[in-house]
Design a binder for these strands. Sequence first.
DNA 1: GTGAAGCTTCTACCCAGTGGAGGGTTCTTG
DNA 2: CAAGAACCCTCCACTGGGTAGAAGCTTCAC
Lengths: 136, 136
Amino acid sequence: MARQGSLSANPAPSLRIGEVARRTGLPVKTIRYYCDEGLLQSKDRSAGGYRLFDEENLAELAIIRALRAMDVSIPELARILEVRRAGVCNCAVLKDSIAAKMESINLRIGELAAMKDELARLLSSWQDCGGSKLQR
Amino acid sequence: MARQGSLSANPAPSLRIGEVARRTGLPVKTIRYYCDEGLLQSKDRSAGGYRLFDEENLAELAIIRALRAMDVSIPELARILEVRRAGVCNCAVLKDSIAAKMESINLRIGELAAMKDELARLLSSWQDCGGSKLQR
DNA sequence: GTGAAGCTTCTACCCAGTGGAGGGTTCTTG
DNA sequence: CAAGAACCCTCCACTGGGTAGAAGCTTCAC
């Protein structure tokens, strides 16, 4: 698939994992883990077996990072990236999973708010408790 | 196991794990796990090696359940229950950990709200994307 | 005494990584 | 060309809070 586009198209993969880590801010181990999980596909290996990445991989890692920060799971990310890799617009897939994510965030916020209220109630109901023994 | 005690003082431990599970709504495995982790101390064992619990254990499980629902960690719970078991008022300990918990809940709510905003922004910025191929 | 339900311990699995061991590769310097 | 530093590889074990299953023992009602 020699794509000889002029700009940042697809030069020979040349970035080693440490450089990718430096550029993305992700730990080397995490990048390797993403490779193992199939999220990231290093284009090639060096003669000595080193993973070699390209700019496209950096773009994928940017997506992974952003969506992971929003708690999109690894399997879901794998699905999204697979569709993306197929070259098809995956707006629908993304929109679905983002909408679902927003829904679950709303739920979670509601739960946390309820917890907070409960904790506040708990705290205020203890104002009278000194430091002495309790009969529990 | 004649239980002739009238109320919930401290009768001989007589509840087996299944009964405790039924009463608390927790899975048997979870209760066993709490025992293993030192949260819960079954008072005795039957001749055949079965864990035997009492009313006090039920009270502890109620505390565990309530605080776990608020994401208090197992080690922290162990600490709290240990103090409680020592018979000392642990209002200070509880208050500290609850205050810390409220703080972290606030942080988390802020994070989630920010995520939600970001997702909403993302979604609205994609309204123009059809179903066709993308050059990604 | 027999069958079912309940219990025991043990091992392994989930997620999303992280840490370390032990060993190979690449690059720079002399 | 050799040494050494920096880098990378795979493999295994661990995290937290449980959950699932296997193999075998106990309890209880009939």
